[in-house]
Computed example of a mutant assay.
Amino acid sequence: MERSREPTALVLRALHVGDLLVAVPALRALRRAFPGHRMVLAAPGSLAPLVPLTGAVDQLLPTSDPDALAWTGPPPDVAVNLHGKGPQSHRALDATAPGRRIGFRAPGWPGPRFEEIALRHPHERERWCAMLAAHGIPADPADLRLPPPQETPRCGSHAPVLVHPGARYGSKRWPVRRFAEVAAVLHCALSPVLITGTADERELALAVARAAGLAESRVLAGRTDLAELCALVAGAALVVSGDTGVAHLAAAFATPSVTLYGPVGPQQWGPPADGPHAVLDEPGARRGDPFADDPDPALLEIGVGDVLRAAAALRGTRARALR
């Protein structure tokens, strides 16, 4: 007898580190809703180290953006749009001729209207869970934690403090001099500071180190891949950063963090309120352009003292939690 084909659920989320992490509760809800399906996630190949930690995905289909979705198998039994409200992302999934469509309402797509969900659920994590709930798939937005990698690096016998000055857009980058002042104060034998970032952010990280009086060996920007960064964040005593992917990693691993918000507030992208996280936000000064080249005025309203006070309040949080 011919073996029946394994049913497949294709999920589109062709975005970045933080975008994947806020979608973890929705991915896990889909895993529970379709336990017999092969769960295929269409997302950038660079996210491969993170995907297994979700416990919800069987296969990563490298996809840099919706138009690059290359589905070559039989039509998926279920297509789930966790990428956006359409039409580009809906159109990419329509091309696979799925048996069932799960997403926001559009021609050929049943479901809730994006505007109605966004009004009631401003946070990105809650928004996708609410969309699934409207399709009859219960989802818990608090189900975001990831298991830590098996080995987490340390600086001697002490967990490091990570200072991450970079961000994808200038609107979310706090000034170098301020990051340097924070790094200089936080760096000591009991909490050695490491400066993280991508290869493109290495010069920025080196500038912070020089201004802080730290050795170049303290700069890990450009020297770690995503798997190594995950291990660093999971084992850190504290993470200080702007609103970028490393802040979402800290939330996922329950690592104490201080996150500085600029053009977009924590109401949409912030960590869970019950975690060891401090959010610094000055909404009254917000310009709100996330793609600007210069720091948002709301970000510039946050002072070095604000960050240091928040860091001091969090010191020891992880040690107490592990007792």
Score class of each variant (00 low, 15 high):
Glu2Met: 09
Arg3Tyr: 05
Ser4Val: 14
Glu6Trp: 00
Val11Leu: 13
Leu12Asn: 10
His16Asn: 07
His16Tyr: 01
Gly18Arg: 02
Leu20Met: 10
Ala23Asn: 10
Val24Cys: 07
Pro25Cys: 09
Arg28Thr: 14
Leu30Trp: 04
Leu30Cys: 05
Pro35Cys: 11
Pro44Thr: 14
Ser46Lys: 13
Leu50Gly: 04
Pro52Met: 14
Val57Ser: 02
Leu60Cys: 00
Leu60His: 01
Leu61Glu: 04
Leu61Thr: 04
Leu61Gly: 00
Pro62Met: 12
Thr63Ser: 07
Asp65Lys: 15
Gly73Tyr: 09
Gly84Pro: 04
Gly86Asp: 05
Gly86Gln: 03
Gln88Phe: 10
Gln88Arg: 15
Arg91Gly: 00
Arg91Ser: 02
Asp94Cys: 05
Ala97Asn: 06
Pro98Val: 12
Gly99Arg: 10
Ile102Lys: 10
Phe104Tyr: 13
Ile117Trp: 12
Ile117Lys: 14
Met131His: 05
Met131Thr: 02
Met131Ser: 00
Ala133Val: 10
Ala134Pro: 03
His135Thr: 02
His135Arg: 15
Ala142Asp: 13
Asp143Pro: 05
Asp143Gly: 03
Leu144Met: 09
Arg145Thr: 15
Leu146Asp: 11
Pro153Trp: 04
Cys155Gly: 00
His158Glu: 04
His158Leu: 03
Leu162Trp: 06
Leu162Ala: 11
Pro165Phe: 03
Lys172Met: 06
Arg177Ala: 12
Arg177Asn: 05
Glu181Pro: 02
Glu181Ser: 12
Val182Cys: 10
Val182Gly: 07
Val182His: 08
Ala183Leu: 02
His187Cys: 01
Leu194Asn: 00
Ala199Pro: 07
Glu201His: 04
Leu204Thr: 09
Arg210Ala: 14
Val219Ser: 08
Val219Asn: 06
Val219Tyr: 07
Ala221Met: 11
Val233Pro: 05
Ala237Phe: 03
Leu238Val: 11
Val239Leu: 13
Val240Lys: 06
Val240Cys: 07
Ser241Ala: 15
Ser241Trp: 07
Leu249Gln: 11
Ala250Phe: 12
Thr255Val: 12
Tyr261Glu: 08
Tyr261Met: 10
Gly262Thr: 15
Pro263Leu: 15
Pro266Arg: 07
Gln268Asn: 03
Trp269Thr: 15
Trp269Met: 13
Asp274Glu: 15
Ala278Val: 14
Gly284Gln: 07
Ala285Ile: 07
Ala285Asn: 08
Arg286Ala: 08
Ala292Ile: 11
Asp293Tyr: 01
Pro295His: 09
Pro297Glu: 08
Pro297Tyr: 09
Pro297His: 08
Ala298Cys: 04
Ile302Ala: 01
Asp306Gln: 06
Arg309Met: 09
Ala310Phe: 06
Arg318Thr: 10
Ala319Trp: 08
Arg320Asn: 00
Arg320Thr: 04
Leu322Met: 14
Arg323Pro: 08
